[in-house]
Design a binder for these strands. Structure first.
Lengths: 158, 158
DNA sequence: ATTGTAAATGGGACTCATTCTCATTAATAA
DNA sequence: TTATTAATGAGAATGAGTCCCATTTACAAT
């Protein structure tokens, strides 16, 4: 029985080919790295991990592939304010468990995924989106909700 | 009778000096530019406008002053995903009118400030902050809530 | 008003994430 | 197996933001 991340990687690969893109070794490696982590990796971190699997992959390919995956909505790109983008694989849409928002430590950059209050949040956000879409004649495609502060370890220091 | 932006600039200057910082010509120019606009200017745009008032001001000073103002919580720094920071003067805390969130067009980068639904949003966010702070022992200092999509003009094009 | 002095400046060099270019390679269909 | 064209890798280029340091300036004390 395949484990979760293998399944996930397989799903990604299928989806990727379904769009007519070639499934190269570099792309497989990038998908593998993203599938097997729960962290919010930067392009550079992804590059390093990919490099271990497939040493000939270059940075450009990592950036290009990530951009493509973001376009295909298979990956989310975040900015947590530290000057580099972070990437996270989109788990399946149906998986309610997976929908989360972020809590970011301004000092140590740690990011916590939280799912508490998500239902209330999502409900309000949907309502707001609907209202805004109507009032401003805007087609709303995504939202960002993040909380920033000091984590347990950092808030007592200094 | 001074107009609104003159009052605002005066208030800023007073506040600035109150913190013990020197009120240089460059800083006055930067505050003037920020006071008299409702836009979300980038550092470069601010630099250009400052240059008209006080041509000898340099980019470094603009960046340094903006950073200082952000620290003093007199200016908010935003990232709307176009690779450059945007700055907005904090209007007085008491002015409820002023509290707004953003609606960002992914194509033309236009940013709309909206105040609709703000009360509901703020209430939910406060509740969520309290819950998160307790559960994760986090000291929450700020949040970001932004909606992204296509504006009236852009959504029908292409 | 004049002066002393520490804060602030300007401008250019620098950093570093990301994008671009282009000759080469490799995935896929035929 | 081969043709074709997407994709690649290496390194150059870009561009926002930061740093450095000799010079200037705000402002308190005189």
């Amino acid at each position: 029985m395949p484990d979760n991340f293998t399944k996930r990687a397989g799903w990604c690969q299928g989806r990727f080919k379904g769009y007519g893109y070639r499934l190269t070794l570099s792309r497989q490696a990038i998908l593998a790295v993203l599938s097997r982590t729960g962290e919010h990796l930067s392009a550079e971190e992804i590059y390093h991990r990919v490099h271990k699997i497939h040493p000939s992959s270059g940075m450009s390919t990592v950036y290009r592939t990530l951009e493509l995956l973001v376009q295909l909505q298979m990956v989310h790109k975040f900015d947590f304010g530290d000057g580099r983008a972070r990437y996270e694989l989109q788990r399946s849409k149906e998986d309610k468990e997976d929908h989360h928002h972020h809590l970011v430590c301004l000092r140590c950059q740690r990011v916590i995924n939280y799912t508490d209050f998500i239902d209330d949040e999502v409900e309000l956000l949907k309502r707001t989106e609907k209202g805004l879409a109507k009032k401003y004649n805007f087609k709303i495609m995504k939202h960002i909700l993040q909380f920033y502060g000091l984590c347990e370890q950092c808030k007592d220091r200094e």
